[in-house]
Each structure stands twice: as structure tokens, then as C-alpha cells.
């Protein structure tokens, strides 16, 4: 038990980072992580050591967040979190910071299904297969969501109506 708790503890920084990127809010993110940890400790007998502990914790966290958003949708007259674009919290003084703030804002505007994929793959650096298992989606779905997320992010950050992607990928000899 103590060993498991120690192992859980080592996953917390990554969980907090992911939760913060996913929710866009420090307190809400820590609430989410706390919910996740409580559930993990209560349901620790359900964890099978076949997968990594970290994957299991991410799975719990994402499911809790999906459920929270679902219950949010049941409440009338409240815009979904995907529609809200918050102001950048980084002072927009240098070009780099402007770009960062724009990326942050664009991220918040992505649909959840795209955001959860993009963040697992980019920020957490997960293998596609592992990310697909955590999200409980086929790998093809993961790829298409990742593609759409990146396309939308480019579009929002660059302020260009529709940036073309290289469509004519030619044969490699």
C-alpha cells in the first residue's frame, strides 16, 4: 500500500500539468487531480499491473472530467467550457509571449475530444497507442482528432482564414 502511494505520488506533477492544460484553470485542475487520486486510492484493487500506473491514473482523470462536463451540460443556460475563450494571463509584451498567449487561448477553444488527444501526445509525450487506450478510442480516431486539433490551432493562432496543408504528398522513391 505504502509503495503504491509512493508510486502514485510520482505521477502527480504530470497529472497536474495535464489537468491544468485541459481545464485552463489552476484550482479546477487541482480539484480534478484530487478527485482522481481519491478514486484511485478507493479503487486501487481495480488496478491491474498490466498497464502502467500512470496510464490508469490518466484514464481515471479523463473519465472524471468527461463526467463533470456532462453534468455541466445538464444545467441550462450555461455555455460549455469549449466556447469560452479566456483572456491571456501572460502579459502580451513580447512577440513570443503574444504567440504563447494566443496558443493558450486557442487551446481553450478546442473541443474537449481534440484537446484531450493533443495534450496527451504533445505535452505528455505519450505513444499514440497508449494515448488511444487511455482515451478508449481507436488509433484512427486518435489520428484524425490530432490532425483536426493541430489544424484548428494553426488557424486560430495565425489569424489566417484557412491555411493549406500539404495535400499533394508525393511518392517517395
Amino acid at each position: 500500500m505504502t509503495q503504491l502511494l509512493d508510486e502514485i505520488e510520482t505521477c502527480i506533477p504530470a497529472l497536474r500539468r495535464y489537468a491544468r492544460a485541459l481545464t485552463g484553470n489552476v484550482d479546477q485542475a487541482d480539484d480534478l487531480v484530487q478527485d482522481c487520486l481519491e478514486r484511485a486510492i478507493r479503487k486501487r484493487h481495480l488496478w491491474s499491473p498490466t498497464g502502467t500506473l500512470q496510464s490508469w491514473l490518466f484514464t481515471l482523470l479523463i473519465n472524471i472530467y468527461r463526467n463533470q462536463l456532462r453534468s455541466l451540460k445538464d444545467r441550462p443556460s450555461l455555455s460549455s467550457i469549449d466556447e469560452i475563450t479566456s483572456e491571456p494571463s501572460i502579459p502580451a509584451s513580447q512577440p513570443d509571449q503574444i504567440a504563447l498567449a494566443e496558443t493558450k487561448r486557442a487551446l481553450a477553444s478546442l473541443p474537449l475530444e481534440q484537446r484531450e488527444v493533443l495534450l496527451l501526445v504533445t505535452i505528455e509525450g505519450m505513444a499514440y497507442k497508449e494515448a488511444a487506450e487511455i482515451l478508449n478510442i481507436p488509433i484512427g480516431t486518435l489520428m484524425s482528432r490530432l490532425g483536426r486539433a493541430r489544424k484548428r490551432l494553426r488557424k486560430l493562432v495565425d489569424h489566417e482564414p484557412e491555411k493549406s496543408e500539404p495535400t499533394n504528398l508525393r511518392r517517395v522513391k
Partner: peptide
Amino acid sequence: KQKEQLKTLFEDTLQEPIPDRLSPHELA
């Protein structure tokens, strides 16, 4: 570039001390 920006935005989180309310031992 986009990937680097996303990582930069949230990399500080990893260095933050973990608040007591998230300690697995305390929660257990």
C-alpha cells in the same frame, strides 16, 4: 513550433510543490 509552445505553456507546473490536499498518503 506549436508543440514547443504547448510544452512551454505548462512546463512550470512540474516544478511546483504539491499541495497537502493532493498528498496520496494523506488522502489514504
